[in-house]
């Protein structure tokens, strides 16, 4: 009977009712093949990407932070969003380390997040070490401040008095654990505005906590003007909401999802309005702004490796939606019978 029913189904109905396991298998095969192709094709599969103003402004600001200043990185992600957040933190770390900018890292979102961030820092430190670049040292160049379960209160405290917000926190120094305020990273930070930048890498709504509580004064890094020192690197899911904050001037820049990682990698390779870049990335808002890149260095990384697979995956989803809709129209119009 079941076979008979199957035979009587029109093409339109069949097109709408592929078994879910078949769909899953197609997805796995398409993504796997794309990932492997990217690996073996190497630079031949570096797909073009046009960075948006939000990513360009993020990159330009991070590239203009004065050398030796301290950037606060609030790392609120775990490996549940490794695909997007790891690439974001990795690209940020590469820039900060190449520019000798100090940073402190902590989380207001998840007890796993500080360890995940430290592991990412260790990966990039090793990458630099293998290339013979200067080793970024914990305590002298960066510190870890751990996890703060009450993000709302902690952000208020950071805004009110950053010298007291982390009071009692100790981090690993060459002489054993010491008060974090003795570290070169925090030694000269007296107020929130002494921070070079404050960057939130998040897989959730923690940027809201910061927007609602932190208020930075406008600053200048040489000729470069910064209206707000708060920046965000968020997952695609959080993107549309965070774009709204960026467009209201609440963020100095914004990097969204895997596309954002690819934008960062493109900018690191080509700079902004930079004639020496392989390709010219134009910033239409200010054609006088020139930000250099690091052509030839380790810029293309996780984002670029995943980008081709994102194309094929998205294309598959679009095809699946089209197939479902075409199936529905055929079934409704009675066409495709006995096809």
């Amino acid at each position: 009977m079941a076979d008979l029913a199957q035979e009587e189904r029109t093409f339109g109905e069949k097109l709408q009712s592929l078994p879910r396991q078949v769909l899953y298998l197609i997805l796995i095969v398409v993504i796997s093949a794309s990932v492997i192709a990217s690996k073996f094709a190497g630079p031949a599969l570096v797909l073009p990407n046009k960075p948006g103003n939000n990513a360009i402004e993020f990159y330009a600001t991070v590239m203009n932070v004065p050398e030796g200043s301290t950037v606060a990185i609030q790392s609120d992600w775990t490996n549940s969003t490794r695909g997007e957040s790891a690439g974001q933190l990795e690209s940020l770390l590469r820039i900060l380390m190449r520019r000798n900018v100090k940073f402190m890292v902590y989380s207001l979102a998840d007890p796993q997040a500080p360890q995940v961030a430290r592991d990412t820092i260790a990966r990039i430190t090793l990458e630099r070490k293998l290339k013979g670049e200067r080793e970024y040292k914990r305590w002298d160049d960066w510190i870890s401040l751990g996890f703060f379960p009450n993000g709302e209160g902690t952000a208020k405290s950071i805004q009110s008095d950053i010298r007291k917000a982390f009071k009692g926190k100790r981090d690993v120094s060459p002489e054993g654990p010491r008060d974090v305020y003795q570290s070169p990273v925090l030694k000269n930070i007296q107020t929130l505005d002494d921070l070079g930048l404050y960057i939130n890498i998040t897989a959730s709504k923690t940027i809201d906590v910061l927007i609602e509580r932190l208020k930075f004064k406008p600053a200048r890094f040489g000729d470069f003007e910064v209206k707000n020192k708060l920046g965000s690197m968020c997952t695609g899911v959080m993107g549309p909401e965070t774009v709204n904050y960026y467009s209201a001037g609440l963020l100095f820049g914004l990097v969204v999802g895997l596309n954002g990682v690819v934008e960062m990698e493109t900018l690191m390779e080509n700079g902004v309005n930079w004639p020496e870049g392989k390709k010219t990335v134009e910033y239409a808002k200010d054609k006088q702004l020139v930000v250099p890149g690091w052509t030839g260095k380790q810029n293309y990384a996780r984002g670029t490796s995943y980008y081709f697979a994102l194309h094929t995956g998205m294309a598959l989803l679009i095809l699946a939606v089209l197939a479902g809709n075409i199936g529905m129209w055929l079934a409704r119009s009675g066409k495709g019978k006995n096809a």
Partner: peptide, 12 residues
């Protein structure tokens, strides 16, 4: 996987 399946079945 669930997004793909849901989009295929319900996005009409």
């Amino acid at each position: 996987f669930f997004i793909l399946s849901a989009a295929y079945r319900a996005f009409r």
